[in-house]
Amino acid sequence: MELLQILLLATLQGLTEFLPISSSAHLILAPVVTGYEDQGLAFDVAVHLGTLAAVVGYFRHEIISISSDFFRSWFNPAARSRESHLGWMIIIATLPVGVFGILMKSLVETDLRSPLVIAITTIGFGLLLLLADRTGKRQRDEYAIRYKDALVIGLFQALAIIPGTSRSGATITGGLFLGLTRKAASRFSFLISIPTILMSGGLLTLDLISSDTPTDWLSLSLGTGLAFITAYLCIHYFLRFIETMGMLPFVIYRLILGGLILLFLV
């Protein structure tokens, strides 16, 4: 891979994985727009690993607290805390995407990767995000999420299997509709991305193992590192400014992107 291609794709993955603008859409469209050959499965695994490392690194203290309280509560129900409760909510919210991901894997990899599908989902879910941002009460934090709320957010995340939807965009939309603050909806979206990216990366890795494609370790290493840096910075600044910035800039971007796809690629 060329250095410029590595820089472009790794930065795209790092930024778009956690912004509500769809990483899959950008990675699918990038070779079409730039003329580069498809980056290949190994590079997809590498940049997913970079974004996973970023979100784990950023939320490392929360992950340790949630995990320790979650397992402690198994042996001592009286030790249940808001962290152990949040751990259960993360598990429940992850279940739908695991089920739908397995059932729809072949469909997603073929028919749903078309520019028309991406344009429709980019625009449609952008407008849905705007509606959620404008109508949501924004009064609850992530620790107030109930079992039913977690399942609803999980179903929104399952919809993001369709390219152009945006995993973070869908889950933040679901959280806002349920009355979470922008920051709480975003934090919960980032936390449930950890098992989701693990599952997605695991499936990609299995496919990679079964293929005979030669490995360019230098390109993969650069891609992983760049995806990590951009994703970490993206999470930090997104959470810092989202309460005052709102979702409108991302909605406008999605509408412009979807319109350009319809105009030039469909």
Rank of each mutant, 00 (worst) to 15 (best):
residue 230 T to R: 03
residue 238 F to C: 09
residue 238 F to Q: 04
residue 254 R to F: 08
residue 250 F to H: 02
residue 251 V to W: 00
residue 228 F to C: 05
residue 233 L to F: 15
residue 231 A to V: 12
residue 257 L to N: 03
residue 247 M to Y: 14
residue 238 F to M: 15
residue 226 L to W: 03
residue 240 R to K: 15
residue 253 Y to H: 12
residue 248 L to S: 10
residue 231 A to D: 05
residue 227 A to L: 05
residue 227 A to D: 05
residue 236 H to E: 12
residue 252 I to W: 11
residue 257 L to I: 12
residue 239 L to D: 07
residue 246 G to T: 12
residue 238 F to Y: 12
residue 236 H to D: 13
residue 244 T to Q: 14
residue 246 G to P: 08
residue 226 L to F: 10
residue 237 Y to N: 10
residue 237 Y to L: 13
residue 258 G to L: 07
residue 224 T to H: 03
residue 255 L to I: 15
residue 246 G to R: 09
residue 253 Y to M: 11
residue 250 F to R: 06
residue 242 I to H: 08
residue 235 I to L: 13
residue 234 C to L: 04
residue 247 M to W: 02
residue 250 F to E: 05
residue 247 M to T: 07
residue 235 I to Y: 04
residue 249 P to L: 09
residue 233 L to N: 05
residue 235 I to P: 02
residue 235 I to M: 12
residue 257 L to W: 02
residue 257 L to F: 15
residue 229 I to E: 00
residue 250 F to W: 08
residue 238 F to G: 02
residue 252 I to M: 08
residue 251 V to C: 02
residue 228 F to V: 08
residue 258 G to E: 13
residue 237 Y to A: 03
residue 258 G to C: 08
residue 232 Y to C: 04
residue 244 T to L: 06
residue 254 R to W: 10
residue 248 L to I: 14
residue 255 L to M: 13
residue 227 A to Y: 04
residue 245 M to F: 09
residue 231 A to G: 09
residue 243 E to Y: 10
residue 234 C to V: 06
residue 234 C to W: 02
residue 243 E to R: 06
residue 224 T to D: 01
residue 225 G to T: 04
residue 255 L to H: 10
residue 258 G to K: 00
residue 246 G to H: 09
residue 237 Y to S: 11
residue 229 I to G: 01
residue 240 R to W: 11
residue 247 M to Q: 07
residue 250 F to M: 07
residue 234 C to A: 15
residue 225 G to C: 12
residue 247 M to F: 15
residue 224 T to S: 11
residue 232 Y to G: 02
residue 240 R to V: 00
residue 258 G to Q: 09
residue 255 L to V: 15
residue 243 E to T: 13
residue 244 T to E: 13
residue 248 L to V: 14
residue 228 F to A: 07
residue 237 Y to I: 12
residue 227 A to N: 03
residue 241 F to K: 11
residue 235 I to R: 02
residue 236 H to T: 11
